[in-house]
Structure formats: structure tokens, C-alpha cells
């Protein structure tokens, strides 16, 4: 397996802080490499020695079962040494600062840092202060680049040419790091990007990013080739700008009945974890159009690709 990926080109980016600012060639290289790693995951051994001797630390300052497991799996499949560090963001406000924490861990000789943090731009601070390769596993509502890459991979597997295809992100756009990264990635692939949800969950001036906005789910269902259903954060919303989950489900929840008006080959994605019965119904989540479990497997494969490709810069990130 190593041979299939060795000798490939290098990424232009040295870290993965966000999709914004990346070039299409980098994304293509990552997707291509991801497909190779996906084949590895289908072999009985499931493992390569690509990152032997490389130490990766997963720093998670927010709860995330799914992304953390996916990264950890990817790192172990690549034979990296893995260290996990979890704490709440609020501990950073009181105790040791992020920079001190990270520098301390780096002093123990690590090579790559995967971080989830509640503050947009926290990864830039790490990059400015460390020598390690930095990978963003989500920073507030800013970016979640590896999610966008695995989403893109899942879409391109079914629809290789995205040019002119309409991809709709449904739901909570304003609090979503997935939305921002997806928008940047999809636009690099020439897709038309649309966002759909209640007006209070659509952030200001998003149309200036070249994104179409609709509040009407039926319209979005009719004109979309792909729909990415974002998670409604149950604990966050109800209040001044969100009446109830009941109303949300009735007007923006994806049901099979509503999907009847969609194109035959519409693709349904969900980055997880799903709130069944809120943004997505059982019959859609388990139905014919969804690629939700493909996304999970692609997540491991693409994170392997990202770790592997970025590891070429170890020791020379700056």
C-alpha cells in the first residue's frame, strides 16, 4: 500500500487550519489519496506503517466523540503514536493558557497536533507558537475542514462532476463550522451552493459569499442534487430566535414525504450526530438516498490521507 501513496505530490498547505485559502489541487490530492487509504481499510490488516515514529496529539477542548474517534482511528491505522488530551475550553480561561499547555505537550516531542476548540482562530495561535503540524478538528463556528473533505469525498464518489450541481446545506448555518468549510470546498469544485433554514439560523451577508439563500425547504428539495443536513443543537436554540423543535421539524425536517418531490438521484448527507425526528426522519436517515455511513468510513480514510500528506512537512513546517 505504501507504494501507492509514496512518491505522490506534496500539498501546498503546510497545516490544515481551514478550507478557505486552499487550492483545488490540494483537495484533489487529498481525495485521491483518501481513496487509496479507503482500499487499505478494506484489507484484513487495515493498517499501514506510513506514520511509524510520528507522534500525534489529539487536543479536544470540546466534547466530540465522533471526530475524536475518527482521528484516533486514522492515526492508529497509520501506525502513529497517539496521545489524547481532553479538557473543557473554560478551563483555559481560568488555568494554564492554551499556548502554555500546547508548548508543554510539544516539549515532550510531538510532531502533529489535532485540535478541537471553541474559539475561531485558536489554531492560528498554535501555528504561530509551535513547530508541530496543526490540524483543525473544528474551531467554534468557523471551520471544520476535515468534515468538509469527507463530505466532498462522499459526494464525489456518487457525483464525480460537481460543476453546476446544486448542493444545499440545510439547518443551523449560523452556528455551524461544517457549513463554512463545506461552502469553501464545494465552491472550489464548481458546485452551486445553497443554504436553507429559518432566517434566524442564516448568518448575515452570507449571500456575499456567492451562496444562494432560501427559507423554503420544498423549493430546496426540488432544485438540489445534494443535501447536507446539519445538526440542530438541541440545547442551544429555543428562545428569542427559534420557537420550537416541533416547528423546526415540521418545516425544515427532512422526511420521505417531502423528499418525494426531489430529483431521483438526490444525495442526502448528515455530518452526525443525528437528531432523528428533528432535522431528519428515520426513513430518510436509513433510506436509499443517504450516504451517512459512507461518510463515516470516508472520514477515517480522508483523515488518514490528511495526516499522511501533511506529515511530509514534519520538522519543516515553518
Amino acid at each position: 500500500m505504501d507504494d501507492t501513496v509514496k512518491g505522490t505530490k506534496l500539498l501546498k498547505t503546510k497545516h490544515l487550519l481551514g478550507i478557505k485559502g486552499m487550492c483545488r489541487e490540494d483537495l484533489e490530492l487529498i481525495l485521491q489519496t483518501s481513496e487509496s487509504f479507503k482500499q487499505v481499510l478494506d484489507t484484513p490488516n487495515k493498517k499501514v506503517a506510513a506514520l511509524k515514529g510520528v507522534t500525534v496529539v489529539n487536543m479536544f477542548f470540546e466534547n466530540s466523540t465522533r471526530t475524536k474517534i475518527s482521528f484516533e482511528m486514522a492515526e492508529k491505522r497509520l501506525s502513529a503514536d497517539v496521545v489524547n488530551f481532553a479538557a473543557s475550553s473554560s478551563s483555559l480561561k481560568k488555568g494554564e493558557t492554551l499556548i502554555d499547555t500546547a508548548k508543554n505537550i510539544e516539549a515532550m516531542k510531538i510532531d502533529m497536533v489535532v485540535m478541537r476548540h471553541s474559539t475561531p482562530g485558536a489554531h492560528k495561535m498554535l501555528m504561530d507558537n509551535l513547530n508541530s503540524i496543526i490540524i483543525n478538528a473544528g474551531d467554534g463556528a468557523h471551520e471544520h475542514p476535515t468534515q468538509a473533505i469527507l463530505d466532498l469525498m462522499s459526494i464525489v464518489q456518487k457525483k464525480p462532476n460537481l460543476k453546476g450541481k446544486r448542493v444545499t446545506l440545510v439547518g443551523d448555518i449560523v452556528h455551524s463550522r461544517v457549513a463554512m468549510s463545506n461552502i469553501h470546498a464545494l465552491k472550489l469544485y464548481g458546485a452551486k451552493v445553497q443554504v436553507c433554514g429559518p432566517s434566524t439560523l442564516i448568518p448575515k451577508d452570507i449571500e456575499k459569499m456567492g451562496v444562494e439563500v432560501t427559507y423554503d425547504l420544498d423549493e430546496a428539495i426540488r432544485n438540489s442534487d445534494v443535501m447536507n443536513i446539519l445538526r440542530i443543537q438541541l440545547e442551544r436554540h429555543v428562545g428569542a430566535s427559534f420557537p420550537s423543535l416541533r416547528e423546526y421539524h415540521n418545516y425544515w425536517g427532512i422526511t420521505n414525504e417531502k423528499l418525494a418531490r426531489a430529483k431521483n438521484d438526490i444525495l442526502i448527507l448528515h455530518p452526525g450526530p443525528m437528531n432523528r425526528g428533528v432535522e431528519i426522519d428515520d426513513d430518510v436517515a436509513d433510506g436509499d438516498h443517504q450516504v451517512i455511513l459512507d461518510q463515516v468510513l470516508n472520514g477515517v480514510a480522508s483523515r488518514m490521507a490528511i495526516l499522511y500528506l501533511l506529515s511530509a512537512n514534519i520538522g519543516g513546517a515553518k
Partner: peptide, 13 residues
Amino acid sequence: NESLSSTELGMSY
């Protein structure tokens, strides 16, 4: 500020 910048940066505004 609430603007295109806060939207792209995902910052509270």
C-alpha cells in the same frame, strides 16, 4: 461586528 466577516469567521457578533 455582525457582518460578512463574522459569518465567515464563525465568530459571535
